[in-house]
């Protein structure tokens, strides 16, 4: 089939036609809204009163955010959750990946699958499941803790100080497998003869782990930790669903992304929420940069 000549695409224009869906969608749903939110960050505005009700307030929204107690609280919650879910993820994922790499042949795919499954499951289904497992008097988690360690029933979701560990556990559970897969991929690139040479020299398993495995994994650790930092600072769905969108007792599981949502959609303050989103974005960039720096050798070029 031949198209009439005016419909035939000249090779010169073809690339632009092929990338045009990206450019058009990106312009409409990416660049424009982003610029608009930057503009909005300097305005006082409630969407219900129409576009003409917008009022320039300078840095007012930013000042308000920085004085807002809840904003700081949400930042602290976010940092707490990111650390409490992120650090164990890597501490557990690295040895787990080493075990799987060394000892599993035939069951390998099945085991990796089991650990990875939570990552592809709907957050809503997960949060619903866990809110029943974490229930105080009849939840399976308390029943297990009681029979194993004799622990009294913990009010996981009804007490301010307990919600955060519950959320952190769910996040840990959900992303552990992803990290295991990252580390498994990195383990495969370590040359076998390094271990053989170490065996010859009489180095034990622990020595091999600390002198060969860990140093070889370092680039992947940097990458994985960076993903955890970026992801942790965006945490939204798990605590949102688990606390019915409100942040739980005393807002103790209200992350910054959740507070942003509430500012805009519960309190109708779009200007304030926009300002907050840019502050938070700056924080993500800063933390990514700091993580990157912390892992580089001192004195080396960045």
């Amino acid at each position: 089939m031949r198209l009439p000549s005016f419909l035939r695409l000249s090779p010169r224009w073809a690339p632009y036609v092929f990338i045009s869906p990206f450019l058009i969608l990106f312009a409409i749903f990416g660049v424009f809204p982003l610029l608009f939110s930057l503009y909005l960050a300097f305005q006082s505005w409630e969407p219900t009163s129409g576009l003409q009700a917008m009022e320039y307030v300078g840095l007012g929204n930013f000042a308000f955010a920085l004085e807002d107690e809840w904003f700081w609280k949400s930042l602290k919650n976010t940092a707490w959750l990111a650390l409490a879910s992120g650090v164990p993820q890597h501490l557990v994922a690295i040895p787990l990946a080493v075990f799987i790499h060394n000892s599993f042949k035939r069951l390998r795919d099945g085991v990796i699958g089991a650990y990875f499954l939570p990552y592809i499951t709907s957050t809503v289904a997960i949060a619903i499941m866990f809110s029943s497992l974490f229930s105080k008097d009849f939840g399976l988690i308390n029943a297990g803790l009681h029979s194993l360690f004799g622990v009294e029933n913990v009010d996981w979701l009804g007490k301010a100080e307990n919600i955060k560990p519950a959320v952190a556990f769910i996040v840990f559970w959900r992303y552990l497998g992803f990290n295991v897969v990252l580390y498994l991929a990195a383990l495969q690139t370590i040359p076998k003869d390094l271990y053989e040479a170490a065996d010859m020299d009489g180095a034990g398993r622990w020595q091999q782990f600390f002198h060969i495995t860990l140093p070889s994994l370092k680039p992947m650790i940097l990458f994985g930790v960076m993903l955890s930092v970026i992801g942790g600072l965006q945490l939204f769905e798990e605590p949102f669903i688990l606390t019915g969108g409100k942040g739980g007792i005393d807002q103790s599981a209200m992350t910054s992304a959740m507070y942003l949502y509430r500012m805009a959609f519960d309190f109708n303050d779009f200007g304030g929420a926009s300002a907050m989103s840019w502050l938070l974005f700056a924080l993500v960039v800063l933390m990514t940069w700091l993580t990157n720096r912390a892992f580089r050798p001192r004195g080396g070029s960045v």
């Binding site: 424009f32 809204p33 942003l260 779009f270």
Partner: peptide, 12 residues
């Protein structure tokens, strides 16, 4: 980050 799109997405 996904939260950057939240408010602009609604507005557009």
């Amino acid at each position: 980050p996904s939260f950057m799109g939240m408010i602009p997405a609604f507005m557009i």
